[in-house]
């Protein structure tokens, strides 16, 4: 009987002790363990130009040789996103949006990986190019996808001048008499058509605006202003003014946009 009581007491004390230990040793409620979430990727890095803001490029120089003008020069790649010329090794990448090639590197094309006649062939470029007879300011509607052409060297001489190939970004005045007074200095001058100006016959030109689907699928409109160094008005463009130094303005809007907006 005594043994039984003693055992009972010991059991009770042990039980109480065990419960106390359990109580105090029990854990705090843990915070939930962080679970890994889906990775995120930035689609527009800080070194790219912002959407909806007009950019200006002045005197972008490309190689020319007046003594041998028909010899082809290396195609020049330019990134609208990064606002800079890119090396030729970037051909099969999405790091350029327009190229300058052909005679005097004066013909412009987009970056497209599907067209074998494009420096971006087999690359990821999804670009294209077209041009409309509208001013930069008035052009607000983005054309349908089928309007964009994908080969290189598509936009160049305009039918308003000599050797025109449709609507182009510049008027070539072979004899110097379409825009100029026919003098020696006004012969062989290329006039950018981004802004309207008056011809020798008194007519006013209709401005042209280039529209580009960029390599990454955004849209840009471009106003070509000059291909002469530090000269931005037609009266100062002369035969021997240093060339080819492209000056142009552009704005980029995101893929999927239907309108060009400037904010």
């Amino acid at each position: 009987m005594n043994i039984s009581k003693t055992a009972t007491r010991v059991f009770k004390q042990l039980s109480v002790g065990l419960m106390l230990i359990t109580f105090f040793a029990s854990c705090k409620k843990d915070k939930p363990v962080a679970t890994e979430k889906e990775p995120v990727t930035s689609t527009r890095s800080l070194d790219m130009v912002p959407y909806y803001k007009v950019q200006r490029v002045e005197n972008l120089q490309v190689e020319t040789d007046d003594s041998n003008p028909t010899a082809p020069k290396p195609e020049v790649l330019f990134s609208l996103d990064y606002k800079k010329m890119q090396p030729a090794t970037y051909g099969k990448t999405s790091f350029w949006d327009i190229s300058f090639s052909g005679l005097y590197n004066s013909f412009i094309g987009g970056n497209n990986g599907s067209n074998s006649d494009n420096a971006g062939y087999t690359g990821p470029g999804a670009g294209g190019i077209t041009i409309l007879a509208k001013s930069f300011e008035d052009l607000t509607d983005i054309p349908v996808a089928s309007a964009f052409k994908t080969a290189r060297a598509l936009i160049g001489t305009d039918d308003m001048g000599e050797f025109g190939v449709g609507i182009g970004w510049y008027l070539y005045d072979f004899n110097g008499s379409i825009v100029g007074d026919g003098s020696y200095d006004k012969k062989h001058v290329a006039y950018a058509l981004g802004n309207a100006f008056t011809l020798a016959n008194g007519q006013k030109t209709q401005p042209r605006t280039i529209i580009v689907r960029t390599a990454k699928g955004d849209f840009a409109k471009i106003k070509m202003i000059s291909c002469y160094k530090d000269v931005f008005t037609t009266d100062k463009m002369m035969r021997n003014t240093p060339h080819m130094f492209f000056t142009f303005e552009y704005v980029i809007v995101p893929a999927g946009s239907t309108k060009f907006e400037i904010k």
Binding site: S15, V16, M19, T22, S26, C27, D30
Partner: peptide, 19 residues
């Protein structure tokens, strides 16, 4: 007392190892 501590024991949280 036993019932109370038994309840505490069973309702105490599981112990998790913090990574």
């Amino acid at each position: 007392v036993l019932m109370a501590f038994t309840a505490i024991h069973f309702f105490a949280c599981k112990k998790t190892v913090d990574y």
